[in-house]
């Protein structure tokens, strides 16, 4: 329960998708101002790995744990579909088993997932960090530089709009896609045991 959340109980934190506070105001905006999210900043200082998926990513961005902003989709509509992504500079606990340019197929399901970042931040900091990009022709929302997800420079914090947890069992992948999002969770399990 969000009212009695304690950091000491956890090795890593995943903020899942959903619609915290019904997305009122702006996706993630209210959640990012609750007490639990304040604790995420403590988690960051304690070097606890944090993964934000979809609404979780929106919350991390609203809470300024990751750079950039997530704007309403280009066509201003919610979009739910499977897409292909690839990873650049995989690093840190969430991507330790992922190789450079490795493709990961996952579904997206969001209305406010158009990533935006100014060019200076992009060049100065993002290009040094892990980035998940939509494969050509798969950008569902008009994100700048085809960005689907970004990490902190050390990769401890990662946020992404697509849903790796919905792509973790073969039975859930439609024809033409692989359910290989599980690698994020396998990476974490591996990293917690053996470091990253």
């Amino acid at each position: 329960m969000y009212k009695d959340f304690s950091l000491n109980d956890w090795d890593a934190l995943i903020i899942p998708g959903g619609f915290s506070y019904g997305d009122w105001l702006r996706a993630g905006a209210i959640a990012a101002r609750t007490q639990a999210i304040e604790k995420l900043k403590d988690a960051k200082d304690m070097h606890i790995p944090i993964l934000g998926i979809c609404n979780g990513f929106q919350i991390l961005v609203e809470g300024e744990l990751l750079p950039g902003a997530l704007l309403p989709n280009e066509n201003s509509k919610f979009v739910c579909r499977w897409i292909k992504t690839y990873v650049e500079k995989p690093r840190g606990p969430w991507l330790s088993l992922v190789e450079e340019k490795q493709e990961i197929d996952m579904p997206v399901a969001h209305a406010e997932g158009r990533y935006y970042v100014d060019e200076e931040t992009y060049r100065s900091s993002l290009l040094k960090s892990p980035i998940v990009r939509y494969a050509p022709g798969h950008n569902p929302n008009g994100s700048i530089y085809d960005i689907a997800g970004v990490g902190s420079e050390d990769g401890l914090i990662l946020g992404l709009m697509p849903h790796p947890e919905r792509s973790s069992e073969d039975i859930l992948a439609p024809r033409g896609f692989r359910a290989n999002g599980k690698i994020l969770f396998e990476s974490l399990a591996h990293s917690l045991k053996k470091g990253w």
Binding site: K77, F78, C80, A109, R166, E169, L172, P174
Partner: peptide, 17 residues
């Protein structure tokens, strides 16, 4: 596509398939 037809990870056969 305007509906999240996958939340809950139960949807094995999805719309259109």
């Amino acid at each position: 596509e305007q509906y999240d037809h996958e939340v809950g990870v139960r949807t094995v056969v999805k719309p259109g398939f």
